[in-house]
Design a protein around this nucleic acid. Structure first.
Lengths: 222, 222
DNA sequence: GTCTATATGACGATAGAC
DNA sequence: GTCTATCGTCATATAGAC
């Protein structure tokens, strides 16, 4: 068996397969945006790819597996977005409110602009579908990144020393997911800039900073 | 035409019809709780009522109309619950945090215990379904009741005089719906008492009271 | 390996008999 | 008011063509 000469077409096949998978996911997101997350249909994906529905089972063993791939892809995209956000604007300010507002706004903006993903990630709209363990991996990674970020802020004295980082992070996720939920449920399609609930972020960031912030360090909160 | 003699069987027919409708709704809620909101199927309702599916169309012209009835019924039940809550414990305390925590806890508790309704009311899980104007009526009523309650608290000096009641209410709904969303999405089936996100209510109520409360009146906030 | 043809059973919905 | 019959669509399984 000659491994080396087989490797090239094997790679090409694999690459082509992955490209097809990505194309399936692209169409799936588009359809979810049009018809709702639970309105995704394999037949519609196949139609747009000029395939027959059963052909999709070559790439995904079930519709749930497709949702799992979308779930993981969504968290991965959001994780990348938040990493880029942190690189663009390192949180060097001494104002907890300003830092949380920037982070929160980026999070909410991505969710509003990618509402199909957001509904899949933050709600539970698909009957019978529960994300698999592997699909949760990037979500866990984002959680750990957020936790580390908050811990660093505490280290720098922006969070009070007696604050439990996990509790503060739980409350912060409640604030942010509340904004996203209300925005997507009550004003679907409304852009981030003009959303009535997205506009609540400044007050909510101030609330959070006042409550968990260190008054000795952070003069801006009152 | 003798109207009087027709009236009795007509009433009986109407009453019987309404009873059947209520029975349909009861089964629908039960099925949504088991299979998810979007997993509701007319066939399953008919099966449990020992009917054929087309017979349901005598009572509801479409599945969306059924969802509309469930939407209105859910808000009505929640409205009744919040009214009873206010009667049991009139908000006579002088502590904004305590008042908001009681109201918020009752709201979240109902939502967790009636998670099928809650998903329908606070999320948008059904592809293609948008609540009709009539179905929104009890939701609007509850909003107005909440708005009046906050205005009364402002009148009593528990909310700062410069606070916009509508803004404060928007932020409060974000907090509460954030708790409900996170609780139902991440710990489905978990009771109110042991829910990780339901347990955030005390901190969130304190956050809200600190931010919008009147420090001159409300010594408890810090 | 990749796609297709075909089939099954469930679904929402409609028409028309009784 | 309830039924049977029917339609079109869906996810899914199997078997087989290339």
């Amino acid at each position: 068996m000659v491994v080396a000469s087989d490797a090239v077409p094997l790679d090409r096949r694999h690459r082509r397969r992955r490209e097809t998978i990505e194309e399936v996911l692209d169409h799936a997101v588009q359809i979810m945006a049009e018809d709702g997350v639970a309105g995704l249909s394999l037949g519609e994906i196949a139609r747009r790819m000029e395939m027959r529905p059963p052909s999709l089972y070559v790439y995904f063993p079930s519709k749930h597996a497709l949702y799992d791939a979308l779930f993981a892809r969504g968290w991965r995209l959001l994780l990348d977005r938040m990493r880029a956000s942190e690189e663009e604007h390192p949180s060097v300010e001494d104002d907890l409110r300003v830092i949380m507002l920037r982070v929160g706004n980026d999070f909410v903006r991505w969710s509003v602009e990618n509402f199909a993903y957001a509904q899949l990630l933050f709600w539970r709209p698909v009957p019978g579908y529960r994300p698999g363990e592997a699909a949760y991996e990037p979500a866990v990674e984002l959680y750990q990144q957020s936790s580390a970020r908050l811990a660093a802020l505490k280290q720098r004295g922006l969070l009070r020393a007696d604050v439990d980082v996990e509790v503060a992070l739980r409350d912060w996720t409640v604030l942010v997911s509340g904004v996203i939920s209300q925005q997507l449920a009550n004003e679907p399609g409304e852009p981030f800039e003009s959303g009535r609930f997205a506009a609540a972020m400044p007050e909510l960031a101030a609330m959070f900073a006042n409550y968990y912030g260190n008054p000795a360090r952070d003069r801006a909160s009152s």
